[in-house]
Amino acid sequence: MEKRVVFRSAWLPYALLVPQIAVTIVFFFWPAAQAFWFSFQLQDAFGISTEFAGLRNFADLLRDEHYLASFKSTAVFSLLVAASGIAISLLLATMADRVLRGALAYKTLLIWPYAVAPAVAGVLWAFLFAPSIGIVTYVIRKAGYNWDWVLQGDQAMLLVVMAATWKQISYNFLFFLAGLQSIPRSLVEAAAIDGAGPSRRFWTIVFPLLSPTTFFLLVVNIVYAFFDTFGVIDSTTQGGPAGATQILVYKVYYDGVKAGDLGGSSAQSVILMLIVIALTVAQFRFIERKVQY
């Protein structure tokens, strides 16, 4: 879509674009290009000499079992966050769509976790489940289980998944609620007249009609789990124990900032950029389909 009526000026449009483009070049393109460039270089431990290394950083990474383990943790983490977040919020949204009384109050009480910073969400959950003083830990121990996420990798993963999902439920809930409310009432009524019960109506009519929303949320949640959960990890497990929760973004940060491996960290950045591009393309492909639907 284009405007028919436009203004003419040889310089004004450029002047209006300067701030945005300048920030974009200085803080986006230039650093991205540098990450690309560093990823082909090897640096010694003191940063004094660098040499061109071709694809060696990438080859090293693909041979590094820690990096491959990090890929696996990221996949497990993002699938768990996306699946549990979508399931819980779909349940809540379906219920909220049914009730007439108190709908606004329910909505208000469900959306506030969106405002909590991932790092703060991590602190809240880590406190509940703290190995020695956590109140939930106390209950779990009473029930006879051993809970210590500082030492147990699976439990650490469970903790970060819970904290990350908790924060994302409100987002999914709002989109599901909007999706549910846009489903034509006549379809549901027709099915009811034909004798379909509530659960049958949900699975044969509502759920299929929600599939564009569900797919959209799947992509958004995976992107969220990949990148925005850095704060959750850093304020709770810091990638531990023994790398069990070291997702890709955390490893880029850890290797580059804490371990000082510029080449390896940059090569990881480049791989991550490729993943973001793939996810963004998936998202936009889908949006085109949604318009037809």
């Binding site: 230039w30 580059g256 950045s269 973001v276």
Partner: peptide, 24 residues
């Protein structure tokens, strides 16, 4: 220019941490 702004969607700060830090 439009595309230039568009592709910044694909470069979240998390993937270009160290070079951006260096620039700043």
């Amino acid at each position: 220019f439009f595309w230039m702004i568009f592709v910044t969607l694909m470069l979240p700060v998390e993937v270009r941490i160290i070079p951006t830090y260096k620039v700043v």
